[in-house]
């Protein structure tokens, strides 16, 4: 039986077909996927904080709307990805518990601070840019629900990247102080953005197996190179300097040579000792704790409603429809889509 499971799974992989939740799959494949998708979902949710901190201070109403819509999209990405985890039986509440307990990780980049409004643009340009390079191949990843979620996530991330670049571009047309803010922000985010592709392939714990299973399609180093080659001309057009003295075009390779990120710093951040690691988890924990009574109320109300149908007949129908007839989440995500 076990032999047949492996054959079928490998047969699907060999034919380049998607693995769907009901298909047989090795337990190690299932747990590797849950680990990766949960980490991705957590990154979206924790990633709301560094930029979300600037929504209240956005310097124009248009920028406020753009930033709010972007951070909202990140919450939406978190939802799709938790839903993808649920197709493999991993519940959002349990994954959240593991995040808060430090047992599951989120992207290293969100452990860095955002002390300037220019960081909103830099995160869009460099961080979302790196995320896109990482994630576009995931649209062809072997697990169907993950691949389908990534198609939409990538479209939205691409939109965010353009908005981030456009903010920096506009600031570069502004005052000297604004131009200095952009350069200072790029200086801080360049190396952490390169670290987003993970350690060199030789040191990557999960890469080889993930490649064999078709979860990953490209090595960390290949994607990092692709990002550098894509970003250098954009930096030139923007008029900013990338803070790497070793960065130069190599005509023989047809690519840019570039310096090595500080991998010791990367390991510290991954170990939960980044500049803002404590703050990010504390923020998430506080929101989780403060919201506990609301989630309990929703559960209690749903239980009561399933026993006794609440009499809402005296309320005009246009004001409120019975809550239990509709799933709020479905409605909201549909609405968010309409706004695009």
């Amino acid at each position: 039986m076990a032999q047949q499971t492996v054959d079928t799974f490998e047969g699907l992989l060999a034919r380049g077909e998607r693995i769907e939740p009901g298909d047989p799959m090795p337990e190690a494949y299932r747990s590797a996927l849950v680990r990766q998708m949960a980490q991705h979902a957590h990154s979206e949710v924790i990633g709301m904080q560094p930029e979300g901190a600037w929504i209240g201070r956005a310097p124009s109403l248009r920028r406020k709307a753009v930033l709010l819509a972007k951070v909202q999209d990140e919450a939406g990405h978190g939802l799709y990805l938790y839903a993808a985890c649920e197709t493999l039986g991993a519940q959002r509440a349990e994954l959240t518990r593991l995040l808060l307990a430090g047992a599951q990780k989120y992207s290293s980049i969100f452990a860095y601070p955002t002390p300037s409004y220019a960081d909103v643009g830099t995160i869009g340009w460099l961080v979302d840019g790196a995320a896109i390079v990482n994630q576009v191949p995931l649209c062809r990843t072997s697990f169907g629900p993950y691949a389908r979620a990534m198609v939409r996530v990538c479209k939205e991330e691409s939109f965010h990247q353009r908005q981030g670049f456009e903010l920096l571009w506009t600031m570069m047309q502004g005052t000297d102080v604004q131009r200095a803010l952009v350069q200072e922000s790029v200086d801080r985010f360049w190396w952490p953005a390169l670290m987003m592709f993970g350690p060199p392939d030789a040191d990557s714990a999960h890469s080889a197996q993930s490649m064999a299973w078709g979860i990953k399609r490209h090595g960390n180093d290949e994607l990092r190179q692709r990002f550098v080659d894509m970003t250098v001309p954009q930096a030139e057009a923007l008029g900013v300097t990338l803070p790497d003295p070793d960065l130069r075009w190599n005509p023989e390779r047809g690519s840019h040579d570039f310096g090595e990120p500080d991998w010791a710093e990367f390991r510290e951040v991954l170990a939960g000792r980044g500049p803002c690691s404590t703050e990010r988890l504390a923020h998430r924990q506080r929101a989780h704790d403060d919201g506990a009574w609301v989630r309990e109320a929703a559960r209690a109300y749903a239980e009561k409603s399933s026993r006794v149908h609440a009499d809402t007949s005296t309320i005009p129908a246009s004001v409120v429809e019975p809550v239990e007839t509709r799933r709020v989440a479905e409605r909201l995500t549909t609405r968010s889509e309409e706004k695009r």
Partner: peptide
């Protein structure tokens, strides 16, 4: 409330 709501669906709703 954006990043502080009791549930992700409410982060989305209040932002909307």
């Amino acid at each position: 409330w954006c990043s502080r709501a009791p549930e992700l669906e409410l982060d989305l709703a209040w932002a909307n």
